[in-house]
C-alpha cells in the first residue's frame, strides 16, 4: 500500500496537476462541445431539449473518456517507455505492477473529473437534475465503460513512432465517437454504419448512461459487450506486449 500511495502521488502531480494537455483535451474540449451543442445549436422542443441535455451529457462523458484513453494514457505510457522510466521501475524491487495500477487509477480519476466538470455544466447551465442514485450510476457506468478504452490506450502505446501514435489516436477517437453516436444521434448514420457503431465499446457505455440518466432499464447486452471488449482487448494487449518485447530484443530496442 505504501508503494502504491507513493506511485499515486508521483503520477498525480505529473499526469494531472502539471499536465495542461490533459486539462484541455479531456476536460475542456468535451465541456466546450457540450455547451456548443446544448446552448448554441438548439433544435427541438423544450421537452426534447431537456432529454437531449441529459443524454448529451452522458455522450460527452464517454467522449472525454475516449480522448483520455487514446491520447493521454497512450502517450503517457509511450513517453514513459521511450524515456526509460518503465525499464528503470522494472529494475527496482517494486517492479511494474504498482506503476500500471497507478496509471489505471489516475485514468479513472480523469473520468471522474470529466463527470464533475460536464455534470456541473449540465446542472449549472442546463438545469439538469438527477437523483443521487443516478449520479452514482453515471459514475459507476462511466468507470466500468472506461476499462476497454483504457486497455485500448495501453495497446496504442506500443506503437513505435510518436507521429504514428498521433495519427492512430485521431483515427480511432473521432471515427469511434461518430459511429458510436457520441457527437450526434446514431440514427442519423447509414444502416451499415449503425451496425458497426452498435458493437463499439463507446456505444455500449453511452447506451448504459442513457438508461441510467433517463430512468430506463439497464440492457444486459451492453454490459456483456463491455466485458467482452475488455477481455478481447486485454488478451490482444498481452500478445502485443510479448511480441513487441521479442521484436525489441531482436533489433536491440527493448
Amino acid at each position: 500500500m505504501k508503494h502504491l500511495m507513493s506511485q499515486l502521488s508521483f503520477d498525480g502531480r505529473r499526469l494531472i496537476l502539471r499536465n495542461a494537455s490533459f486539462l484541455f483535451f479531456s476536460l475542456l474540449m468535451p465541456a466546450g462541445f457540450y455547451l456548443l451543442f446544448t446552448r448554441v445549436m438548439i433544435v427541438g422542443t423544450t421537452a426534447e431539449m431537456q432529454v437531449f441535455n441529459v443524454t448529451y451529457m452522458g455522450s460527452m462523458i464517454v467522449y472525454s473518456g475516449l480522448i483520455s484513453a487514446a491520447f493521454s494514457v497512450a502517450s503517457i505510457l509511450k513517453h514513459d517507455r521511450d524515456q526509460g522510466f518503465v525499464n528503470l521501475l522494472n529494475l527496482t524491487p517494486r517492479g511494474l505492477t504498482t506503476y500500471y495500477v497507478s496509471i489505471a487509477l489516475w485514468s479513472l480519476v480523469m473520468t471522474t473529473l470529466a463527470i464533475g466538470v460536464i455534470g456541473g455544466l449540465a446542472m449549472g447551465v442546463n438545469h439538469v437534475s438527477l437523483s443521487g442514485g443516478q449520479w452514482l450510476g453515471v459514475l459507476g457506468v462511466s468507470l466500468f465503460g472506461q476499462i476497454p478504452l483504457l486497455i485500448m490506450g495501453a495497446m496504442m502505446a506500443f506503437i513505435q513512432h510518436t507521429e504514428t501514435l498521433g495519427l492512430v489516436s485521431n483515427l480511432v477517437t473521432f471515427p469511434m465517437a461518430i459511429v458510436s453516436g457520441l457527437w450526434w444521434s446514431i440514427s442519423l448514420l447509414p444502416d451499415w454504419l449503425q451496425q458497426i457503431g452498435k458493437v463499439m465499446p463507446a456505444y455500449f457505455t453511452n447506451s448504459l448512461l442513457e438508461k441510467v440518466t433517463t430512468g430506463g432499464e439497464i440492457e444486459l447486452n451492453s454490459v456483456i459487450g463491455i466485458v467482452l471488449w475488455s477481455l478481447i482487448l486485454f488478451a490482444t494487449m498481452i500478445l502485443i506486449s510479448k511480441l513487441t518485447h521479442k521484436w525489441g530484443v531482436k533489433v536491440g530496442r527493448a
Binding site: K2, H3, S6, Q7, F10, R13, R14, L15, L17, R18, N19, H79, D80, Q83, G84, F85, L88, L89, T92, P93, R94
Partner: peptide, 21 residues
C-alpha cells in the same frame, strides 16, 4: 539513456525511486 520525464523535478524523481527500495 537519461530520463526526461515531463512535469517532474530532480528531487521528486529521486524520492520516488528511493521509495522503491
Amino acid at each position: 539513456t537519461d530520463m526526461v520525464i515531463q512535469g517532474v523535478t530532480v528531487s521528486e524523481l529521486l524520492a520516488e525511486i528511493a521509495s522503491c527500495y
